[in-house]
């Protein structure tokens, strides 16, 4: 589904990603962990197509297409979804209208007509229940006045509505209390399926208690320095990131 070979990215002359390699297959959940400043969020932004990064790679293929050639909105319509670490507020634009615009953009891309009002409402109800989003939030302006937890839940709601092929979760657990974390994780788990993959970016292991990854990768100074199964996350939790630094020969 997603193949990344030797991805490098820099911003204002600072190189953040220094050669990332990653292979994500349908149905898999990959966790990307790493200390602050290791490049986790940069990776998410580059994959989503933020243009302030200068990115080059030997290959970045998403569902058979050269991802770097696609505009951000095309990436989205092809099925790439980014759950933002800091979802922005859009005053005066209702969540519902926003989602309808997004869904219809994707449908037009697929050569389909606008979604009917009836189907849309039914979908909103179903997905809202799935992520336990209060119905009044769906009708409010996009993220405006939402608490941190509500914003994250809204991201998962949007992901459920847009039914992407690949969901990238950028530190979705940050700022969540344990109850909100469970709800968000439950939502993601319900969205799992054989055709859908997730890349879960997180600083802490605790999210991975609820969203169990197939693979864990450790990102450090712009490179994936270690990969393993879910047990790697537990090891990191126990020993901290210093252990990795020692293992790869970096000293503070």
């Amino acid at each position: 589904m997603l193949t990344i070979k030797n991805l490098k990215a820099s911003i204002e002359g600072n190189q953040i990603l220094k050669g990332i390699n990653l292979e994500v297959k349908p149905g898999e959940v990959h966790a990307i962990m790493g200390p602050n400043g290791s490049g986790k969020s940069t990776l998410a932004s580059v994959l989503a197509g933020r243009d302030e990064y200068e990115a080059i790679a030997d290959e970045v293929t998403f569902l058979g297409q050269d991802l770097m050639e696609l505009a951000p909105e095309e990436r989205s319509r092809e099925g790439l979804f980014l759950a933002f670490q800091y979802p922005v507020e859009i005053p005066g634009v209702s969540n519902i209208n926003f989602l309808k615009a997004a869904i219809n953009a994707k449908r037009h891309h697929q050569g389909l007509e606008d979604i009917s009002a009836k189907d849309f409402i039914a979908m909103v109800k179903e997905k809202q229940a799935m992520v336990e989003l209060k119905s009044n939030l769906a009708n409010r302006s996009v993220n405006e006045g939402f608490s941190g937890g509500e914003k994250k839940r809204n991201e998962i709601f949007q992901m459920a509505m847009l039914e992407p092929k690949l969901g990238i979760l950028d530190e979705t657990d940050s700022g969540l209390d344990i109850d909100a974390l469970k709800i968000v994780s439950n939502g993601v788990n319900k969205l799992k399926g054989p055709d859908r993959a997730f890349v879960v970016i997180t600083h802490y292991q605790r999210l991975l208690d609820y969203i169990v990854p197939d693979f864990v990768h450790v990102l450090f100074e712009g490179r994936i320095v270690k990969s393993g199964g879910k047990e790697l996350a537990l090891e990191l939790e126990e020993k901290g990131y210093d252990w990795i630094k020692e293992e790869i020969g970096v000293h503070n």
Partner: peptide, 23 residues
């Protein structure tokens, strides 16, 4: 705000239109 819309598949013209109408 624009990038948020783009990431949801909404093109830039439409994004500006949404944001301005919301405002």
């Amino acid at each position: 705000q624009i990038f948020y819309c783009l990431q949801r598949g909404i093109d830039e013209e439409k994004a500006v239109s949404l944001i301005v109408n919301g405002y």
